[in-house]
Amino acid sequence: KADDKIVELLSHWHPNMTINLLDDHSPWTKGSIPPPLDQYIEFDMLTGKYYPVLYLNDYWNLLSDYYPINNTMDTLNLTLVYSPLQLWKWQMYISQSLRQSWYGNLLGDDESDEDQDAMKRALIETNPYLLIITICVSIVHTVFEILAFKNDIQFWRTRKSLEGLSVRSIFFNIFQSAIVLLYVFDNDTNTMVRISVFVGILI
């Protein structure tokens, strides 16, 4: 009989609470609001008008900023931030909050809280110009990778035989790609990297 494992649930506290009031005057009617925005908007049964939207924004609450609550703590600090929020920013926050569930449903892999914290910390601490350059370089790299896949596919589709090619080098490249694929799977690498390496082996 396996030993029963006791799991202790420990409450944590974050010193920041941000409440946003949606600053938008769109003439929405019931049934016309696209999802997932319709989950946050309630209508009055008599007038048909919707109530002001208050959004508890915890997107920038990093996991590293939470600390456990125990008996040694006499006081808990809380900074309350109340500010208006534009519609496009609200949509961005909602899409980010739903991204993890969609990510898991589509790719079968959940994004960890540590990965999300790393991305948020990069957005907060990185110089904006350096961040823009990094994004541009990543986009260019993705485009070049797609073009490389396209050229490889065209090359092998037009080949009628292996004349002029080294079969040994082909199998050696496949072996190298297989080792890289096993490595990225063993180290819990990003799913997009896994897909890229796997597609390279198939080509």
Rank of each mutant, 00 (worst) to 15 (best):
L87G: 01
W156A: 06
E145F: 09
Y93C: 03
K160T: 06
V137S: 11
S101C: 07
P84Y: 07
Q96H: 11
Q154G: 05
N105C: 06
L123D: 13
D117S: 11
T134R: 15
E111D: 03
L87W: 09
Y129P: 03
W90V: 04
I94R: 00
Q154F: 07
G108H: 04
S83A: 13
L85H: 01
L87S: 06
S95I: 01
L162D: 13
R159E: 06
I124S: 07
L131S: 12
G104M: 13
E114A: 11
L147P: 02
E163Q: 07
V81I: 15
A148L: 14
D115Y: 09
R157V: 06
P84G: 09
Y82L: 15
I135M: 08
V140Q: 10
S166P: 05
F149L: 15
W90L: 03
D113Q: 11
E114M: 00
S95P: 00
Q154S: 14
Q91E: 14
I133E: 05
C136W: 05
K89M: 12
W156G: 00
T134E: 15
T126Y: 09
I132D: 08
W156M: 04
M119Q: 03
S138H: 09
E145S: 15
L106Y: 10
W102N: 02
E125W: 11
F149D: 15
I133M: 07
K160F: 08
D113V: 04
M92H: 13
K160I: 03
Y93F: 14
I146P: 00
A148F: 11
H141T: 05
T142V: 05
V140T: 11
W90Q: 04
Y82W: 12
R99N: 03
F149T: 11
D115G: 04
Q96E: 15
R99D: 00
D117T: 10
A148T: 08
S95R: 13
Y93N: 05
I133D: 10
N105S: 13
I94F: 03
S138Q: 09
S97G: 10
I139K: 11
V137K: 12
D113L: 15
N105H: 13
A118F: 04
V140N: 10
I153S: 05
W102P: 01
D110L: 07
E145W: 12
I133L: 07
L98D: 09
W90D: 00
S112Q: 06
M119V: 04
I139S: 13
L85N: 04
Y82A: 10
V81E: 06
F144V: 07
R99L: 03
T158F: 05
H141C: 04
Q91V: 10
E145K: 13
I146K: 04
E114R: 01
R168F: 02
L162T: 05
S161Y: 07
K160N: 09
G164Q: 10
W88K: 13
D110P: 01
L147E: 08
D115A: 14
K160R: 13
T142I: 08
Q116I: 09
G104E: 11
A122I: 05
P128C: 15
A122T: 02
E163P: 01
L106C: 04
E145L: 14
W156L: 12
I94C: 02
L98G: 03
I132M: 11
I132E: 15
